[in-house]
């Protein structure tokens, strides 16, 4: 008999059924829905992830702006797709909830972009022409060159670039683009010969012959 069952049996036979006034004053919480814990996660982590997934941070307008910016940072090219095609906006949304310290710099930065594009072009950033968007981005994409009045935007753009790069290159598409070919069982036999030759390097005798 498992201990849980023993306890149940004990309480049913007279130890635990009485509801005292103290207990009655605190209603029992609703039974939580059973949660499937994914492999490799602790229960509290799975619960936390599920809760965060159920929340929304970005407004539709904010999400649209994030999508446009991330695709400016990582556009599609001959080798791979764009940030949004790799699911970067959803990753950024999750990171806002997962690490709430991101929220104000992100929300404020998105508002800064709109404030500035309205001042320059009379429109929210996403409603501007592609040329106007790039004109603004050029003023905040190079932190050391950012002029007074643009430095806050440069900080925000660096944050966007960091999140976009991390989100893209940790996606399946990004991993293929960057050319990481590991994470599979294999036998490591050393640096390929052509690479050794390219760099003018060689293994030592004992590394080639094998250790005793």
């Amino acid at each position: 008999m498992k201990r849980r069952d023993t306890l149940k049996a004990i309480s049913l036979t007279g130890f635990g059924l009485a509801v005292t006034p103290v207990e009655a004053a605190v209603p029992a919480p609703p039974t939580p829905k059973p949660l499937k814990i994914p492999g490799g996660r602790q229960k509290f982590e799975a619960e936390r992830d599920a809760k965060l997934m159920g929340e929304k941070f970005f407004t539709p307008h904010e999400l649209q702006t994030v999508t446009v910016l991330s695709d400016i940072i990582i556009p599609a090219d001959a080798k791979s797709g764009s940030a949004s095609q790799a699911g970067v906006p959803a990753f950024i949304e999750f990171m806002m909830k997962d690490q709430p310290g991101n929220q104000t710099p992100m929300r404020g930065g998105l508002r800064w972009i709109d404030n500035t594009s309205k001042r320059l072009f009379g429109n929210d950033f996403v409603a501007c022409t592609k040329a106007q968007q790039i004109e603004l981005v050029d003023q905040i994409a190079y932190p050391k060159l950012a002029k007074t009045g643009m430095t806050q935007g440069a900080s925000f753009f660096s944050m966007m670039r960091n999140l976009t790069a991390s989100g893209f290159y940790t996606s399946k598409m990004g991993i293929e683009d960057i050319g990481y070919v590991g994470n599979v069982p294999n036998q490591w036999n050393g640096v390929p010969n052509d690479v050794l030759k390219q760099y003018g390097l060689a293994y030592e005798e004992r590394e080639i012959a094998g250790y005793e």
């Binding site: 492999g39 490799g40 982590e45 997962d98 399946k172 069982p185």
Partner: peptide, 21 residues
């Protein structure tokens, strides 16, 4: 499998493996 994280890909984590928890 209940505990395995080995050979998982970063995109199998919603935070891409960040050290939040």
């Amino acid at each position: 499998p209940k505990y395995i994280t080995q050979l998982k890909w970063p995109y199998e984590s919603p935070r891409r493996g960040a050290g939040t928890t």
